[in-house]
């Protein structure tokens, strides 16, 4: 792995990703504003409803965007035939996968930050009796989940482009198997994860009512490991199986 190569590829990705970095966060912002107007009467809702509603409704589009982005960041290279230009540079597949994943990470950071800031502002603006405290860890969690989603779809796209026949079908089957396996492993590891320090991930509603997150530092580490596995497998495919 050559840092210079990764940096050079990343420079190109950033130039091309400008629209993703601007339009998606802008979209999130507008969407959150719309939600705020729509749900001004949040305080009248039952206790956990605003939290679930707001967090669910905003994070879901972001997850979908992250998934699509992971596919497009590789698919566009094939559609424009530039994948051959990229692969003919003195870089290996792992460097390509790493640079693209870093780009995904940067974008996810921007999405997560927008979400995080607007979510908080929105809740605060929408009502008076509730105060919301979001920790840094919630932000990291969202960031990692988005990055994991995008690197996962990147991996699936790499599979689709590496298998000559039934690429899409195989990728779809893999999607089911790998996502289930990921959850299963997380389940098995639960006792281990519990050993890690707990992270205070909580939202305070008004007078001391807390919704505490069941998350430990281990969860974040597991997410990071999954990301690394996705990137490595993608790198392997780009280097050894993806012919242009």
């Amino acid at each position: 792995m050559d840092i210079r190569n990764i940096k050079n590829i990343l420079v190109k990705e950033i130039k091309l990703a400008k629209s993703w970095l601007i339009f998606v966060p802008a979209g999130v912002l507008l969407f959150n504003f719309y939600i705020y107007l729509k749900f001004k009467d949040i305080p009248s809702m039952s206790r956990n409803a605003p939290m679930l509603l707001v967090s669910g409704i905003v994070i879901l589009p972001l997850l979908i965007i992250a998934f699509i982005r992971g596919i497009l960041i590789l698919k566009s290279e094939r559609d424009n035939r530039t994948i051959e230009y990229l692969k003919a540079l003195p870089v290996n597949g792992f460097e390509i996968a790493t640079a693209k994943s870093l780009m995904i990470g940067i974008e996810s950071f921007a999405y997560a930050a927008t979400y995080f800031i607007t979510f908080r502002t929105m809740i605060t603006l929408a009502q008076t009796t509730y105060t919301v405290r979001l920790t840094l860890w919630l932000f990291v969690l969202i960031w990692l989940v988005l990055t994991l989603t995008a690197t996962f779809s990147l991996l699936l796209q790499a599979v689709g482009m590496s298998v000559r026949r039934f690429g899409r079908l195989i990728a779809a089957v893999l999607f089911l198997i790998l996502s289930q396996a990921g959850l299963k492993i997380a389940g098995w590891l639960d006792p281990v994860l519990r050993e890690f320090p707990h992270i205070t991930l909580y939202v305070v509603y008004g007078a001391g009512t807390q919704a505490k997150g069941p998350m430990t530092l281990g969860t974040l580490i597991l997410l990071a490991i999954y990301i690394v596995i996705n990137v490595s497998l993608t790198g392997y495919l780009v280097e050894n199986k993806m012919e242009v």
């Binding site: 424009n80 530039t82 051959e84 230009y85 003919a88 003195p90 870089v91 290996n92 460097e95």
Partner: peptide, 18 residues
């Protein structure tokens, strides 16, 4: 491989520029 590509120049028949 990547190591060799540092020392060899290649031009594709395809219209593969960005």
């Amino acid at each position: 491989g990547a190591g060799l590509r540092k020392h060899v120049s290649y031009m594709s028949e395809n219209d593969y520029l960005y």
